[in-house]
Design a protein around this nucleic acid. Sequence first.
RNA 1: GGCGCGUUGGUCAAUCGGCUAAGACGCCUCCCUUUCACGGAGGAAUGACGGGUUCGACUCCCGUACGUGCUACCA
Length: 507
Amino acid sequence: MKVRVRFAPSPTGGLHLGGVRTILYNYLFAHHHGGEFVIRIEDTDRNRFVEGAEQYIMECLTWCGLEPDESPVKGGPFAPYRQSERKDLYRQYADQLVASGHAYYAFDTPEELENMRKEHRKDEYSAAQYDSRTRLLMRNSLTLSAEETQQLIADGTPHVIRIKIPENTTVTLTDMIRGEVSFDSSLVDDKVLMKADGMPTYHLAVVVDDCLMEITHAFRGEEWLPSAPIHVLLWEYLGWKDKMPQWVHLPLILKPDGNGKLSKRDGDRLGFPVFAMNWTDPKTGDVNMGFKEMGFLPQAFVNMLAVLGWNDGTEQEVMSMDELISKFSIDRVHKGGAKFDFEKAKWFNHQYIQQTDDATLAALSRPFIEANGVNPGEELLLKVIPLIKDRCTLLSDFWTQGHFFFATPELKEKAAITAKWNDTKVQFFTEWAASLTNITDWTEQALEESFNELAATIGLKKGEVMLPLRIMLVGGKYGPGVFAIAEVIGMEETVKRVNSALVEIAG
RNA sequence: GGCGCGUUGGUCAAUCGGCUAAGACGCCUCCCUUUCACGGAGGAAUGACGGGUUCGACUCCCGUACGUGCUACCA
């Protein structure tokens, strides 16, 4: 049987790290087995629907290089791939369940439900849920006569369809990561399958669509494990038990500090992104930073995520997509949740920047450089990149580490010069700047030679004037070799920076 | 509260009964570098706890603790 997996996001906002990792594992698994990976949009909740979220999710997939085989935009043999467009499909299955006695109509108002919960919260069974012990106290087709039920429905009374969970049976399922997991059905409540607005809930929709779309392996976050028995029962009641997918409940990605599931607020609080790409909330206008915009390479981002909760058992951590596909296996996925480590994420990005060729880096880093109002020529950029790439962790570092190649810097660390400044040094720099116009061979080596000679002539140690020169050219105590910098920025600019620094120090 | 799941250095983790417990990130020291990084060489740092089973347990079993998830007409 052909492997078919799906990722089924709700279009409610930014695409979270955990979501991307679930997509990744789906993708790796599908490709490893020569199967198919489909995207299905679970937009059954009208209240939480966010305009633009679906398109955003698809853009994130493209950026990550995790293209699905079937999706709402791409189409496919099981279209449509949006649950809102499949709305009419679900009703018949819900009705089938009612007919077979596995589900029932419920007419309770939100107030009635609230009262029931409040009352039962205090009694001996603290669960306070709509289940075998309380369903007979409520207004539903189990407590109402068939006529009354028909009448209420005919009158258009708002109602839902609930699954009738059996009493005292054990529901067991096999999870590919955790093995056998069992639940006492008495502790599971009669979840709503069809909402009053005619939309199915996740529980019904996921089972129906997974069956209809011939999904063989269902990957999802561990937070779904507690509701898995409902799904297992549904597969059984619908008569599809032999087609039920293998379950794969993935461990959660946790906050780096403290405990708990990583949330978008942790990113804001700790200063790192949790979304793949920038997400702008259309209502509030708030922008949440994405890994892409922070300067991550998609390959690094994906690699980092792949090994957060999975490894191939060797010491290798940096792996290409092809390697990930061939090595991936579910039995090497960890059971426990993993705390997200932004430092490690940056380390991966640094690794990928080092192994990316300069022309590609030029194209990738250009937007981050131009965002600062400069527009370097390609030739210049290509000279700068090899000089600074090994000190760049994020693409944005090509600006922070190389801005002085593109624009005259401010003397931010002037104090480091003035602390040990004297007339001899003034003389040295004045003469050196003047002598530069005579250099015919404008190379790093020639520049250093002339610098050394003059220092010796004037009686200064090279070390005394190296740092001042660096600050004059760079503005601070960092960057590649000073003479290499001078070579790249050219004679005119070098002379200009030394002379204006002299003026600024004197003033 | 109930139920589920989990627990190897600060973090990601290897180990599938023989351990003097890999490796990576981060941290510290030194080297390289008349800057800052990169790089190189070292270093500190680990089996939640208690019982079993076993010649032998980080590995298997039970309990406890802790953590976490769920407990909506949200997914």
